[in-house]
Design a protein around this nucleic acid. Structure first.
Lengths: 345, 345
DNA sequence: ATGAAAGCGCTAACAA
DNA sequence: TTGTTAGCGCTTTCAT
């Protein structure tokens, strides 16, 4: 790799000892201004860069944090990464992004691979498989070993660590209520993430809102899938079989878009005939036709919070046993797939 | 950080020397089977993991590659990362993802930060600012220092290194030709990336196709912007002023979606009245209503090629001065925003 | 077959 | 104010 100059070479060139150079470079009070200047000048001139590996080996910290996300094509995760990246950067940390591809094995391997001094801590969102298999030993192991871990979005109660989650129930509740207030009487529920607890929380919020306003929950109006494979078919079926539907709440990014595609094909007018609210404020929502009203989960903020929390732990600013679950609020972004309301949301 | 067991501790516990342990763990022929077994058993039992920092310091290689991308929310880049991640992983490398946010300074800082032993090589796509400022010293410096660099998508001729690029001219040519073959007579061109060379190549392809088929280029039918700020306004203006438009070729992901939004608002039928072909096969294209016919740049493949190339260089399988520019072909994905053609594309 | 010692690049306690 | 030395965790000659 690069033929960089080392402290040793500077020492030799300037006829001083290695430690003098080290101290001078670190602006130690022990070294005379004159020597400091000589050394620093020489260092600058020869583009000296401390070897971070050696530093890390010494300090027992690498100033990098490992991020584990199930999928980088998911807009929510991508935004979270951005948030993490931002504060990591501000606080002098690098991020090491790893994609688990929703595989338990990959998640395990990655953690294994990185917890040998490569990273100071993890920020992770659990893979689908991990959640369904309920195997968390790889996480509990590193946590037990003293590595700080912050989980976000897809978390699990059996993993004891800091967590950053979206206020799923409440946002789903509000979204559903919004549809009711805009006069929808038959509100469908569509999920392609029924296998994830976040999906179930959103369902809970949906049910809660209906119940609260004395609307009986109609199970026929609910599509609950574990993936997007049969999404289009199921949605089409739902709409064909239930022409009374006048509102739809979708709990994942893709479902919203697919609903709009089906409605487009069926030539159903949005929001005149059917109103839609989606979840996740990604490009899909923003750039759809019409633009989709959606719950915005503040992904960027979540990332920032997670990073700050983790770094605080790493740097010992927060004791290890101080464990919290932070709930990040959401907002509803009103666009053109719902009728405008003039009462406060 | 984690209180892992070290080679030294194993040595002490088993009353052997450090080097014996090291050799045993590396399955050296010098060590007796019996000792090896004792040591390996003990290591396994105590979950010994070699400290990768120490290894890297020793070997002068870290087995991590740094990725620099302008924006993670861009679907193309996200897919490239996936491709890189895949082969990196297969070949035992980690990836360190850094987002430059299209800032020259950030790009410079990141390279600076990582080229001190943290990474073995870079895979990068230039930031907008870097391209417009034409300041590449940070790249040439690391390249001169011997660090392998592979550039992809947004590259520049003044940086001498391996490059992986999409066949922009040809794909734009084909897309435009496709529109002509589907009987479009007045094909508009829309770009929100006029500041990038990739955008200009696509424009070149568009012009080339028209010229080739003796259609005069009408500059009034071209919208060329440096960003998406006024995109919607300009597109609306374009369509209002030029009702003869019956085909649109957009060269970036967002433009395609915005065109569809405008068309939706203007109640223009796709593809009956206007056909559209977009660029970048992201979710936006796949899930729009109607689904967008688009040029698919094989982002994942590009990532794989870049990673393989870089690792080959790192591992010395390819000499440093063997420099290539790999052109990755594209495909046209026919969906519902264009009329079906029955002649081969 | 095993171990002592040097060294990767750096810091820091201690000596001078 | 400057230098010596040990050590971070590991590999690798070179003895033994």
């Amino acid at each position: 790799m690069s033929k960089r100059i080392t402290i040793k070479e500077i020492a030799k060139a300037l006829h001083v000892s290695i430690s003098t150079v080290s101290k001078a470079l670190n602006d130690s009070y022990e070294i005379s201004e004159e020597t400091k200047k000589r050394i620093n000048d020489y260092a600058r001139e020869h583009k000296y860069k401390p070897n971070s590996l050696a530093l890390s080996l010494q300090n027992k910290r690498t100033k990098t944090i490992g991020i584990l996300i199930p999928d980088i094509l998911n807009h929510f995760f991508a935004r979270v990464i951005r948030g993490i990246e931002k504060v990591a950067n501000e606080r002098g940390y690098n991020i090491l992004t790893c994609i688990t591809n929703d595989s338990l094995q990959k998640e395990r391997d990655t953690i294994e691979m990185l917890s040998n001094g490569t990273i100071d801590g993890f920020i992770a969102s659990l893979s689908e498989e991990t959640i369904s298999e309920e195997d968390f030993s790889h996480f509990t192991d590193v946590i037990d070993a003293g590595t700080p871990v912050v989980l976000f979005d897809r978390v699990h109660k059996d993993i004891v660590c800091d967590k950053i989650v979206t206020d799923n129930i409440k946002s789903a509740y509000k979204a559903t209520r919004y549809l009711m207030r805009s006069n929808c009487k038959n509100i469908a529920f569509i999920s392609a993430i029924d296998n994830l607890n976040v999906g179930q929380f959103r369902e809970k919020g949906y049910r809660k809102a209906l119940t609260k306003y004395d609307v009986p929950v109609n199970e026929n109006l609910m599509v609950r899938l574990d993936n997007k494979l049969s999404l289009k078919t199921e949605i089409t079926k739902l709409l064909k079989n239930n022409p009374e539907i006048d509102g739809i709440f979708t709990v994942d990014e893709v479902s919203g878009a697919v609903v709009m595609q089906v409605l487009y094909e069926m030539k159903i007018k949005i929001p005149d005939q059917i109103s839609i609210i989606g979840f996740t404020n990604g490009i899909l929502a923003k750039y759809s036709s019409p633009a989709l009203t959606t719950v915005n989960p503040f992904a960027h903020t979540s990332g920032e919070i997670a990073a700050n929390r983790l770094i605080d732990k790493i740097e010992g600013k927060i004791p290890h046993d101080d464990i919290v679950t932070e709930i990040v609020r959401t907002e509803l972004i009103e666009r053109d797939s719902t009728k405008r309301l003039f009462i406060k949301f």
